[in-house]
């Protein structure tokens, strides 16, 4: 994914001098070495990331170790050790939330990848209008999760939803069903909505990878007597493996981050049926104002993400 093709530029750095301008300091800065320039140009980026990512992360660690109280607008901290973490593991909802998170993440990533792979292959095998597909595919990608959630909420509406009407007409169900009021079907709707949104991006990536697999390699396989499917299975699929892994990593990261969609569709309900860790943390932090507890949960999410990343990295390391 990350490749560098930088050339050595150090050599002719100081040979050439610009005509002296009035601004001597400016001139001086402009003729420093590559390293100096690099650090100078990177300074704003790192300052910003330090202030807005690193400092909050450290502060969150602190928050997760205290009880936070709000008294007359000022904040009070009481040291609590690992109480917040212990509370998390003792929380009667924890097992359920954890199960929902893992089930949702695994199901979504696998289904999206399979579906996208199918779609990409269909387009690769010349479904007409691959150009048109590419264009249409940008639509779900460009819609916000809020609009996406609203759309599905409306279609699956228990009283006026079009899905109910279609299913009744088809004879698959007898009466309108309140899809979002029952834990399992609600989870299904959330999954469907999320897959609808992420499938196009993954399919575009896989398609691009398939199309960029070396043409001569395919030709060679073909002359050796492989059929279209043979070429696909033996040349293209192994060829796009790195990209599949990239998709896997990216999708997992995104799925572990999901919040808006669930918030709009179900707010984690019914009966914790779609309550994933993120929604749980949000509720604790911004509804119940258990800042310490919520920080502990969010650190747990970070840990979970790290574990997933490490597993994938090992997996990828073995591949290469």
């Amino acid at each position: 994914m990350i490749k560098s093709s930088t050339r050595a530029t150090g050599a002719n750095d100081r040979i050439v001098r610009t005509p002296r301008s009035g601004l001597r300091l400016f001139d001086w800065i402009d003729h420093r070495s590559d390293s100096f320039t690099a650090y100078l140009y990177l300074a704003p980026t790192f300052l910003l990331l330090l202030l807005l990512i690193a400092v909050p992360m450290v502060y969150a660690l602190f928050l997760s170790l205290v009880k936070v109280g709000f008294v007359q607008g000022s904040i009070h901290y009481t040291f609590a050790g690992l109480d917040n973490y212990i509370q998390l593991f003792k929380d009667p909802h924890f097992t359920k939330v954890m199960t929902k998170t893992v089930v949702f993440t695994v199901a979504k990533v696998i289904l999206t990848l399979l579906f996208s792979f199918g779609v990409a292959s269909i387009i690769y095998f010349g479904a007409w209008g691959s150009a048109l597909f590419k264009r249409l595919f940008l639509l779900p990608w460009a819609l916000s999760y809020v609009v996406n959630g609203l759309m599905w909420k409306w279609m699956f509406n228990g009283d006026y939803g079009i899905i109910n009407e279609i299913l009744v007409r088809l004879g698959w169900i007898d009466t309108y069903k309140a899809w979002l009021a029952e834990p399992n079907s609600a989870m299904g709707v959330v999954l469907l909505a999320d897959i609808w949104k992420s499938m196009p991006y993954v399919a575009l990536l896989l398609l691009a990878a398939m199309q960029s697999t070396m043409k001569d390699l395919c030709e060679a396989a073909r002359t050796d007597g492989a059929g279209t499917l043979g070429v696909f299975y033996h040349v293209i699929v192994p060829g796009i493996r790195p990209v599949i892994l990239v998709c896997l990593v990216v999708e997992t990261m995104w799925t572990l981050r999901i919040f808006d969609l669930i918030w709009v569709l179900t707010q984690g309900g019914p009966q914790y049926g779609t309550m994933v860790l993120n929604v749980f943390a949000y509720e604790q932090a911004f509804r119940n104002f258990n800042i310490g507890y919520a920080s502990a949960i969010s650190y747990f999410i970070t840990l979970l993400t790290a574990v997933f990343t490490l597993v994938y990295l090992r997996f990828m390391g073995k591949e290469n």
Binding site: I53, V55, A60, M253, I291, S295, T302, T305
Partner: peptide
């Protein structure tokens, strides 16, 4: 790669 939630609360 950091989950947004972990930064949102302290932020």
């Amino acid at each position: 790669m950091l989950p947004a939630m972990a930064i949102l609360i302290p932020m």
